[in-house]
Each structure stands twice: as structure tokens, then as C-alpha cells.
Amino acid sequence: MAGRSRAEMQLLKEERERRMQESSERCLGLVENCLHVGTATATELYTQGETLNRTEQKLDDIEEDLKTTSHHLRGIRSVFASLFSRSPKTEKENDRMVSKEVPVERLDTDLMRQKANDLAWDASSSGCEDAVDRNLVGVQRGLEHAKVLALELGNELDRQNSQVERIAEKTDKVNDQIIGQDIQIKKILRK
């Protein structure tokens, strides 16, 4: 350092400040991109959750229709039995599983609508340190938002995983009921 002039030292300092400011701007840009991707993911998860809700409701409707169909099949079997003087065979009723209602957690819509301009830094700063400080504050705020968003996404994924498991169970149950009713119809038609 003894061999460097004051002008060289000043140039090195300015170059270091410029690189530091560029680095903080890149960090800020990455955080903004992270929030953008997280918000897009949250929107897609919300849409997926609505689809899962409709699917589960339709399965519940199908299950109710199958109960009605089962009742009608017993009546038809009874009519056929009386026509052919046969006594109807007793049949085991399918155990009905009561669906558990889980409160639907919604993603924090205010968080999803958070604008990236909260993170922006003022380009008209009065010095490199001020600009870097503002960028770092923006990075900090962005990371705090990203953390909350990640937690909300995790909660929504947990809720949807439970719902997918319920849907799979209901689908298996409805499928078994349809197979059972198909067998009953074939038996009735053979009489």
C-alpha cells in the first residue's frame, strides 16, 4: 500500500463501492424474483385447492346418489322377488364413513398482492453506503415476506395433502359401491 498513490487508493475504493452496490442490487433483484415466483406458486395452489374442493364435493354428491340408487335397487329386488315368489336375500349394508370437514385455510391474499416496489431502492441516493443500506433493508423486508409466504404455502400444501388423501379414500369407497351395485343389478336382471 505504501507504493500506491492517493489517486490509486481512491480508484480502488470507488471500484469496491461500485461492486458492493451492484452486489446489493443483484441481491435485491433475486429477492424480488423469489417473491414473484412465490406469489405465482401461491396463486396456482389456490386454484388447485379450489379444484380439489369441487372434486371432493362431487364425490360427496356421487356418494349420496349411490345411497339413493341402493335404496331403489332394494325396492326393485323386492318387486322382482314378489313377482317370482322368491324371498329377497339379505344383504350387508355398506358402512358409511362420515366425511370430516376441515376448515379451509386460505393463503394470505394481502401477501400475494404485495408489490415489488416495497423492495425498491432510491436511485438518487447521496452516496454508495446509503444506496447499499437501502438495498439491504429491501433485501431484509423481501426475505421476511418470502418467509411468511413460504410458511403459508407450506400450510396450504399440508391442507391439500390431507384433502387428496380424503379424496382417494372416498374414490375407493364410491368405486366399491358402484361395483357392488353393478353386481346387484346383474343379479336382478338374471331373475
Rank of each mutant, 00 (worst) to 15 (best):
G142K: 00
L66V: 04
S5D: 02
R54V: 11
S162P: 08
K67D: 05
G3I: 08
R166A: 01
L28F: 02
R77M: 07
T47C: 12
V164E: 07
D95L: 13
G154V: 03
D110I: 07
T41R: 03
A146W: 00
F80M: 12
E17C: 03
L149M: 03
Q48V: 11
T39M: 08
D122F: 01
R6G: 02
I188T: 03
D182W: 02
S78R: 12
L35I: 09
E144H: 05
R159I: 02
S162R: 12
R74V: 15
K187F: 09
A120N: 11
L136T: 04
Q140N: 11
Y46M: 05
S5V: 06
G180D: 10
E22P: 13
L11P: 09
G29D: 11
E50M: 14
D172P: 08
D118Y: 04
R26M: 15
E64I: 07
A42R: 00
L11I: 10
S70L: 03
D158G: 06
H36N: 06
G138R: 00
K170I: 13
V139A: 01
S87P: 07
M9S: 11
T69S: 12
E32N: 14
E8T: 06
Q48Y: 06
T55P: 13
K170N: 10
A120Q: 10
E22A: 05
V104R: 11
Q181V: 11
P88G: 03
E91H: 06
K13P: 06
N117T: 15
